[in-house]
Design a protein around this nucleic acid. Sequence first.
DNA 1: AACTAAATTTACTTAATAGTAAAAACTGGA
DNA 2: TCCAGTTTTTACTATTAAGTAAATTTAGTT
Lengths: 221, 221
Amino acid sequence: MENSGIARGNIARQANKKLRRQRILDLAVRLIASDGIEGFTINRLAREARVSTPTIHNLFGKKNDIIKELVSNLIQHMGGLAVKSPPIDPIENAKFFIGNIITEFEKNTDFFRVALMSAEQLGLFHPKLPNGLHQQAQQVARPRKEWYESGLLLGNIEPSVIRETVHNSNRLGRLDWASGYIDLNQMRRQVLQNIFLAYASDASPEYHVRLCEEISSLNSQ
Amino acid sequence: MENSGIARGNIARQANKKLRRQRILDLAVRLIASDGIEGFTINRLAREARVSTPTIHNLFGKKNDIIKELVSNLIQHMGGLAVKSPPIDPIENAKFFIGNIITEFEKNTDFFRVALMSAEQLGLFHPKLPNGLHQQAQQVARPRKEWYESGLLLGNIEPSVIRETVHNSNRLGRLDWASGYIDLNQMRRQVLQNIFLAYASDASPEYHVRLCEEISSLNSQ
DNA sequence: AACTAAATTTACTTAATAGTAAAAACTGGA
DNA sequence: TCCAGTTTTTACTATTAAGTAAATTTAGTT
């Protein structure tokens, strides 16, 4: 285990092992994406990877460890989506975030689909779980102080209510996409529409007009 | 098969068969509710029902037929939820519907949980499926003409947008409950909050005030 | 080239599944 | 009470899963 004198060819071996692992993990994602977690077996993964089953066990441990790894990768990826410099305007802000998410999802469709569904089935989005998925997402959904200070939002409705609804909009959109109910374009439309509606419920008359325009332009395209 | 002269004791037999079927179906629901659809097997059902496996096959056919039956029962139940005389006021209307749903869910908790989850996993809420689940639910969520005529809602936002958001609120609430994320009280709160927010986005100033009051009273209890 | 630890495979075990044919038991009705 | 048809059970097949020990092969280092 130490990289002292004992292990001779360990530096290169570990690196190669990582590559093989990744190759097989990618394949696993593709398999689960096409046939569901149900139909996913170690045997099948081994066969398709042109490798024997003990090799899979050697590289990943038990079957569930593969899925655990996917989900932990998901949590990392999702964390990376909270970007530094979002626009100040609420509408632009919402578009910016959903745009980022879609870019990521497009880059790695199978992975996100599979990981989101696994996480859902494992109950990992449960509000009380300490993996931070829920808390993180709630944080991103919070309306900003500036929006109230500049009078775009009035504050007649508790910011936490807005936040919860925006959070739910994102959540349902992701779920519908991962379930295959809608594609990424439809997800964008649905999520933005729900978010704009939430903002409209507490918007100043002027900003309300802008939100209405945005909503109808979402549906006219 | 005919109830003519051939089959002698068939009238009573068929009735008893129905009773046994129902007893075992109820047990199946309880088993799935406690251990998930994953852990549900014909063997286990037979064991717990103190019956042999071929008996299960005799009564239900293949394994999936049991789940199909649950889901078709669900569709029937859900259809019965669209009641004749809902209140005219939007707020009361929303409370009325969610109240009905909760009453039903409480009456038959395990059944609804299991059936909703099964339906979800089978993709039965897919908008394009001809089982009517989706269309039915969309119909119920539609804002009424009277609300626009009486000036409670202004019509600055397309009614279909409101409908979609209300529908989504109901859907997510049911899903969160079935997933065990929230209990029925929390479901009520979450769904009503989201619906009121949707109405608020297009409400007249006077009705907007009432909606805001309702929302904050939801969160103070 | 040769050595050695790591990685892979062969060949297997254990355990659980869905489903079935045929014998046995049971049930309602005459 | 006894009979015929229904229902259940016994005892089984066939399939498939996860996982493992030991032999074999492979790969990096010297």
